[in-house]
Amino acid sequence: MLDRPKHLRKIKFLNRLKNWVKLTSINVYCFSSGCCGDEILATYGPVYDLERLGVNFVSSPERADVLMIAGTITKEMKPILEDLYNNTEDKKVVIAVGSCAINGGPFYKSDYILNGVKEIFNVDLYVPGCPPRPEAIIYSILRYKERFK
């Protein structure tokens, strides 16, 4: 009987520790093309400096907590994106950056593209704009952080 609350307290502490770790180091895998890719590169630079929020851009999907998908999504890309999604962690968050990744953007009439990433898998956060400003991309990371507070 005495063991139980102690055990629960331990789990609570571990959960809080895990959340704190997730809050301060976010691994982002970025899959981008076109002008949105240039804006994500700009957030990496010294003016906007996304790293001060604890964001690391990683180069393998196995290590990523956040999948950031930007640019036009064509039908040829679909198997590649499915592979990418299955290789990431279980509790991942998907961010769609730019109107091309949200619903096709200016090319929504085209035969070659999909109308957004939402046709392949679930999307948690949308960043509108064509292309979105770097501040908008930073704001999406701040919204992601709110989940662990």
Partner: peptide, 26 residues
């Protein structure tokens, strides 16, 4: 080829000449 094909040249067929610029500058 083909992984980033959007087909801009096909989409803008039939659009008035003043309204083409936002499509082609991408």
């Amino acid at each position: 080829f083909g992984y980033l094909r959007t087909g801009v040249e096909k989409i803008i067929e039939g659009i008035e000449i003043d309204n083409v610029i936002p499509f082609i500058n991408r």
